[in-house]
Design a protein around this nucleic acid. Structure first.
Lengths: 228, 228
DNA sequence: GCAATAGTGTCTTTAAGACATTATCTT
DNA sequence: AAGATAATGTCTTAAAGACACTATTGC
């Protein structure tokens, strides 16, 4: 009863997330060729010879999203392998998420009709190609959960940041407002999450905020629960 | 610069976990054929035509671990796709974990020299084929983390269970001892985690324990943190 | 009775959340 | 001074952890 090994094509599809004007955005491309020509989709590509998943993801970042030189945090989300998910044949996709600070507007890549950032909240109306809507949903939910238990939020910020900026990450990704005072206390008391610097950011209409950098911890204790 | 799509063989490798005599055990098979003939490995197999990942995983459960009829909880862990991870060529593996209550001893499956349960704690000494040691490590860590935030522990238990049995799951998987009284209070106050029944288990040398069944909740609030 | 396990209560400490207060900047 | 944002303090409530105590069985 052993299954005959059937060769499949292996792809990576990327949920590239960044914050723009205080809102969580995802990078989508407009497909030029069929299947789904003219539809919006996640950037993706096939995994090439001698490439690991991360290698292929970085290549797709450069080729389709023009983000080759940007620092991004890359993380596997889930494999989508349902037979029939791609009309061209058996294509199995490893969905990964790529998070970065203030990522720039993409230039049009090769094989791509258009590429732009879309606010994730607005996205409800847009239909995506293949099973990419499901991928986006799973990836965003994974990001929301990881914010509670890991230092993932720092991937959305530059090397030096203020507590307000960090709070902005949580508010944007979770879609909720948090109490500034309580958030400040929680974050600075969580062990190894952020490290205080002897610098301050330029004031933005009030008292200048102290700058922090990432601490050593990747798991947060106590966690920052999404309940306030 | 687009990569040429290179067909790969897609496999599933299973980290099958159960509790035996209060210890977390993993099912390993002894490989009969090369590569790694004679070595212990995770049960696995290729994903066949028209099979999704879960379909293939269930088939492997039946064929290699003789667990076709057992109720198991199946969950993706991670994709391993490093070039060269399999000497036979490009094989990409989706590691999944399968959790079940009191799984029976496996009979020898086809293509398998031997199959048996190994305590995860003892496993330090055993060398596994391919990158299966890494897979096991990642899967067990995922299980440990999920116990904190989800109702995953119930997958290790039969439909009706006592709070002591549930505590045994946490103790076995985490490898720590928990205070019986505090654990009882925490679990019964976590919303929608367990539901009290009007039945009691047969006494095991003390006051008979009330039986519970799984509640509707999949996420635990508040979570059961691994800190005691 | 005793031993064993189940379950509850009490106390202390920690952390969350609501909200007031102080600090430091720009205009 | 007014307005804005940053940061700290205070108070209440919830939950964790240590540990004593009660409850219900078998022997």
């Amino acid at each position: 009863m052993t299954a005959v090994p059937e060769p499949v094509l292996l792809a990576v599809d990327l949920v590239i997330l960044t914050l723009r004007e205080g809102r969580l955005n995802v990078l989508l491309i407009e497909r030029q060729e069929d299947p789904y020509g003219g539809s919006w989709a996640l950037p993706g590509g096939f995994v090439g010879h001698d490439e690991d998943i991360a290698d292929a993801a970085h290549r797709v970042l450069a080729e389709e999203a023009d983000l080759g030189s940007q620092a991004v945090h890359l993380e596997q989300v889930q494999v989508f392998a349902a037979p029939g998910r791609d009309p061209r044949g058996r294509v199995v996709s490893v969905t990964s998420m790529a998070l970065g600070a203030d990522l720039p507007d993409p230039r049009r890549g090769s094989e791509v009709a258009d590429a732009r950032w879309w606010p994730v909240a607005d996205h409800a109306g847009i239909r995506l190609a293949f099973d990419h809507e499901h991928m986006l949903e799973v990836a965003v939910e994974q990001a929301r959960t990881q914010l509670e238990h890991s230092a993932l939020a720092l991937s959305f910020l530059p090397e030096k940041f203020t507590i307000s900026q960090l709070r902005g990450v949580y508010e944007s990704v979770w879609g909720t407002m948090l109490d500034p005072g309580n958030f400040h206390r929680k974050v600075t008391r969580t062990t190894d999450f952020v490290i205080e610097l002897d610098e301050h950011a330029a004031p933005t209409g009030g008292r200048p905020a102290r700058l922090y950098r990432a601490g050593d911890g990747s798991a947060l204790f106590p966690p920052l629960l999404r309940s306030e």
